[in-house]
Each structure stands twice: as C-alpha cells, then as structure tokens.
C-alpha cells in the first residue's frame, strides 16, 4: 500500500520539490534579514532550520488528503471495510517520506551555510528525524479537519501551529545542548515519547476527523 502511495506521489514531482525550495528560501531569509555574521548565525542556525522545516512541512500538509478528497476516493475509502486509521497512517508515512525526508537530507547543507557548530549536526539530524514525524501525524488531524474547506491552508496553520510548540522547544534545546558539548539524551527521549504517543493516538483522531469532514 505504501508502494502505491509512493507511485502516486512520484507522479507529482512538484509536490515534492516545492516544500524543499520553500525550505531553502526561508532559511536564506534569516541571514539576509538579521545579520550575515558567522558567530551570530551559528547561534540561531539550529532553531532557524527547525522553524523553516516546520513551516515547509505545514504548508505541504494541506495537500495530504486534498487529492483524494477532490476525486472522491476518500469517500470510498471511508465506507470501505478496511481500517481507516491504518490508511491514514500509510498516507502520513508516505507524505513524510516524500516531502519531509528530502528536507532532512538538505538540512546539513543549510546548517553549513549558517555555520552551525560541528557538534550540533548530530542533534539537528536526530531531532528532525524524531520530531518531524510527530508533526506530520498531528498535522494530519488538522489536514483532515480542514480538507473540505475552501481556503483551508491558512486555517490549517492556525489550528496546528500551537500544537507543534513542544516539539520545537525540545528540538531547539537539544541542538543548543549539543552545541555546548552537553548530552542531549533527555530531549531525544522526550521527542521519542511524543512520537510514540502521536503514533498511537493521531491516526485514530485523524480518521475520526475525516469522517466529520466528509459528513459535513
């Protein structure tokens, strides 16, 4: 099933590329907007990359269920006997692989451009790896709630952004700890715990939200 979703995703390369380009541009805005001073940039590199990744991810979430909703296949999936939460999970995982994973792969290059201290790379990579799936899962609930609405994009950001704050906080603090040469295991453990919680609960909430949206 994941393979099928991946094939569909491969048909729209723009949906993979656009968030990536957006990510790149947002990161580039910070040195231009604040200061190109390497010492200063190295301080903000971690959080800036995280926030840019968060925004890129969130903008791409809008399309998570959109195509299936528009061609009516979502409705069919909902009345089919197969478990909806499972289908949701597959969709979110595919979405994460196609749009977020490229961002994570690009992140070290941008970290280099922002002069992230060498100690921070591991933390940046690990927090992105553990944190972004949680964001995709929670964002899926929002995407499901707004799927039937015109101009759902801004609304989606509005309803899910506050929920992402804990992930941002722990990721940024892990990177900061790593930059100072300290251990960041506790932050990683918390991020992993949040990912587990989201894995267990979010697909069901998303399935429920899809039912609500379809019945409107």
């Amino acid at each position: 099933m994941i393979g099928r979703e991946l094939l569909i995703a491969a048909r729209y390369p723009a949906e993979i590329l656009n968030p990536l380009v957006f990510f790149l541009m947002v990161v580039a805005l910070f040195p231009l907007g604040i200061s190109p001073e390497p010492e200063f940039l190295s301080l903000i590199a971690g959080p800036v990359i995280w926030i840019a990744a968060l925004l890129a991810l969130m903008l791409s979430l809008d399309s998570l269920f959109k195509n299936d909703f528009d061609d009516g296949s979502l409705e069919q999936l909902l009345i089919s006997p197969s478990p909806i939460a499972m289908m949701v999970l597959v969709k979110v995982i595919t979405h994460w692989f196609t749009t977020v994973f490229p961002i994570i792969l690009l992140a070290p290059v941008l970290a280099l451009m922002l002069h992230l201290p060498a100690e921070g790379y591991g933390a940046l990579f690990l927090t992105l790896l553990l944190g972004t799936p949680t964001i995709s899962l929670i964002g899926g609930i929002g995407a499901a709630l707004t799927v039937g609405l015109h101009r759902g994009g801004v609304l989606l950001s509005l309803i899910v952004l506050p929920l992402f704050i804990p992930i941002l906080v722990f990721s940024a603090s892990a990177i900061e700890a790593a930059n100072m040469g300290m251990l960041y295991n506790p932050q990683l453990a918390i991020l992993a715990a949040m990912l587990l919680l989201a894995l267990l609960a979010a697909p069901f909430a998303t399935a429920f939200a899809l039912k609500i949206s379809i019945n409107n």
């Binding site: 929670i138 609930i141 929002g142 709630l145 309803i159 506050p162 929920l163 704050i165 804990p166 906080v169 722990f170 949040m194 609960a201 909430a205 429920f208 939200a209 609500i212 949206s213 409107n216």
Partner: peptide
C-alpha cells in the same frame, strides 16, 4: 470539528505546559 480540535488541544495542554 471544533470538538475534536478542542480535545486534541486539551491533550496537548499538559505537554505544552511542561515544555514551556
């Protein structure tokens, strides 16, 4: 829809509090 969002928010409030 608002109900579901309010409940998701409620689950998140302790986590947000703790993280802040």
């Amino acid at each position: 829809a608002g109900s579901l969002l309010a409940l998701v928010g409620l689950v998140n409030i302790p986590i947000i509090k703790y993280s802040v």
